[in-house]
Design a protein around this nucleic acid. Structure first.
Length: 570
RNA sequence: CGCGGGGUGGAGCAGUUGGUAGCUCGCCAGGCUCAUAACCUGGAGGUCAUUGGUUCGAGUCCGGUCCCCGCAACCA
């Protein structure tokens, strides 16, 4: 924490390209990562924010087979939807690429080969179920049969959902391939394993001793794994979709997506550095220089891969630095139920952007204010509406509008000069100046929910200041005092543009347009001299608008419909 | 009895090294009227999942039970 860093590499978990992005992804990973990236950039720091689609793996291969198209067609479809929706939503990636790119294939392949040549893998042959009809090996998940414990006929090769017993595929009675329905046969296959057990010692020190500041969910999960003892982990799969294992005699085998995907962070870095070398420099400085601080934003489902497996891969190579922190969020539920791509129980980003044009910040606000930082949270449309109407409109938008309209009314839209300040003025200025430190502490420690609350407090301070000083009354008797009050209110408004920039970039931009001031920096936050006397403002317009019941009802109806559709054909 | 995180007023969350519960929204009342019936002030509302124990005193420590989520067992 106290180390001096020259630059920050921010990664966000690669969304799996078998569907579009939904609010769960956003709340868990992309919104917090984007807030952090924008915050650091605003502070003038050197930042590289990486994203990209994760496009390999069995589910995509199967989906392609189902639809009778190639896997590439499947990932093309979702990759572009995802990329576009992130752009429109204002997730400020420096690069958003994909793991089916040529650069990635080479990077991942080379990475494997380096470890292979160094002798960092162990080879092992085992027997696995093979589907002769579909001509592929079956993951446990893709084998069904009768549960030996409770007789459930639809038990999976890894677990029986009915009685909860953990199973291995060999336990199943009358095993069947979930892909073709045929009876699988056992067949020998060879794979490469990363011996995590060999990395246990340094991982223990690195995490348990050197990173006690990691979030409880992250630290606890890692500790439990380390306490149990690590096992070698396969890094290859029998599949025809992915990065081929670059070893002689490995035909028909590809890198396991979990080996492949995090390397995507590296290949995307290489890609952006090759495209814009003058801006980003050489890629190695982002991955191999101790002065770089790496932060991996992820969801709680892949803590182990980012804290143990990927670091072990990097260490096995030997030339890479390790992440400084891995802030993992919990999950977001939707109207009381788990978000599910297959059940279409989700709010899809690309649909939201169509249904609520120009309202990116509303969703960003709601997902941040209700972010699942310490436990699973629930997203409801009612809450979405309430937060927009009662917080964004009523507190933030309203304050800015009040300051703007009053200035328009009494001073022809020009910032009036301050006269002597009263004690109460001083007190107000000190109060909002002190917000900066708190805000920074919260952002630095990935407490974005609290940080957003701090920013919101600035607007509250503003509203209270106007209510207490009543400039609309004073305008009848004391113009000088009115001028002072409005000057302060406008300075607070300018501060809002800075404080909200990481959270609500579109609205911050709007505020800047209103106050006719674009060159605001984070370091100026807390200052009461952002707008000079007589500075002309633009005519007042509204920052946010109310969301009516009908708009929300329509969304709820949409969800009801997919629920009914699910019940109709389960 | 696999492991981890969580279970605090109607909703969402804080609660640092133990000292009779805080915040935002909602609700009720009052004030104000510049503002998107928005804003400001005050109030009601909680046996801190449950159950034992340690302690002068526990949401905060220890044990049991229940519930939710995640991870694991070659899903990603």
């Amino acid at each position: 924490m106290s180390k001096e860093f020259k630059r920050t590499l921010i990664t966000s978990a690669l969304p799996y390209a078998n569907g579009p992005v939904h609010i769960g992804h956003l709340a868990g990973v992309y919104v917090p990562a984007d807030i952090y990236a924008r915050y650091l950039r605003l502070k003038g720091e050197d930042v590289l924010f990486i994203g990209g689609s994760d496009e390999h793996g069995v589910p995509i291969a199967l989906k392609a087979k189902d639809e009778g198209v190639t896997p590439q067609e499947v990932v093309d479809r979702y990759h572009y939807i995802i990329k576009k929706s992130f752009e429109d939503f204002g997730i400020s990636f420096d690069v958003y690429s994909r793991t089916s790119s040529a650069i990635h294939k080479k990077t991942a392949s080379d990475f494997f080969r380096t470890l292979y040549d160094k002798g960092e893998f162990v080879e092992q042959t085992s027997e696995q179920y093979y589907d002769e009809e579909a001509k592929q090996f079956l993951a446990d998940r893709y084998i069904t049969g009768i549960c030996p414990h409770c007789g459930n006929e639809r038990a999976y090769g890894d677990q029986c959902e009915a009685c909860g017993t953990s199973l291995s595929p060999m336990d199943l009675i009358e095993p069947k391939s979930a892909i073709s329905g045929s009876v699988p046969v056992l067949k020998e296959t060879k794979h490469w394993y990363l011996p995590l057990d060999k990395h246990e010692a340094w991982l223990e020190k690195w995490i348990l001793e050197d990173h006690k500041e990691w979030k409880p969910n992250v630290y606890g999960q890692c500790k439990s794994w380390l306490d149990m003892g690590l096992q070698p982990r396969a890094v290859s799969r029998d599949l025809d979709w992915g990065v081929p294992v670059p070893v002689e005699g490995a035909e028909g085998k590809v890198l396991y997506v979990w080996f492949d995907a995090p390397i995507g962070y590296i290949s995307n870095t290489i890609e952006v550095c090759q495209d814009q070398p003058e801006k980003y420099g050489d890629w190695t400085k982002w991955w191999k220089d101790e002065a770089t601080k790496t932060i991996n934003f992820i969801g709680k489902d892949n803590i182990v891969f980012h804290c143990i497996v990927f670091p072990a891969m990097l260490k096995a190579d030997g030339s890479y630095i390790l992440p400084e922190n891995v802030p993992a969020n919990e999950f977001l539920n939707l109207e009381g139920d788990k978000i599910s791509t297959s059940r279409n129980w989700a709010v899809w980003l690309h649909e939201y952007l169509e249904d609520f044009p120009e309202k990116q910040d509303v969703l960003r606000y709601v997902l941040t204010a209700n972010a699942p930082e310490t436990k699973d949270n629930d997203f409801t449309w009612k809450d979405f509406q309430a937060r927009n109407n009662n917080e964004l409109v009523a507190i933030l938008g309203n304050f800015v509008n009040r300051a703007m309209v009053l200035t328009q009314k009494f001073f022809e839209g020009k910032v009036p000069a301050r006269a002597a300040l009263t004690d109460y003025d001083q007190q107000t200025l000190e109060e909002f100046a002190s917000v900066k430190k708190e805000l920074e502490t919260n952002l630095d420690n990935f407490r974005f929910r609290d940080a957003l609350k701090d920013a919101m407090n600035l607007a509250r301070i503003g509203n209270k200041y106007l209510a207490d000083t009543e400039p609309w009354k004073l305008a009848k008797t004391d113009m000088e005092r009115t001028a002072t009050i409005l000057n302060i209110a406008l300075q607070i408004t300018a501060n809002l543009a800075i404080a909200f920039e990481p959270f609500l970039p579109f609205s911050a931009e709007k505020i800047k347009r209103l106050i006719n001031k674009s060159d605001l920096k984070w370091s100026q936050l807390g200052s009461a001299d952002l707008l000079p006397d007589e500075h002309p403002l633009n005519p007042p317009t509204l920052l946010f608008e109310k969301i009516e019941d009908e708009a929300v009802a329509k969304q709820v109806q949409k969800l009801e419909d997919s629920k009914k559709a699910n019940e109709a054909n389960p």
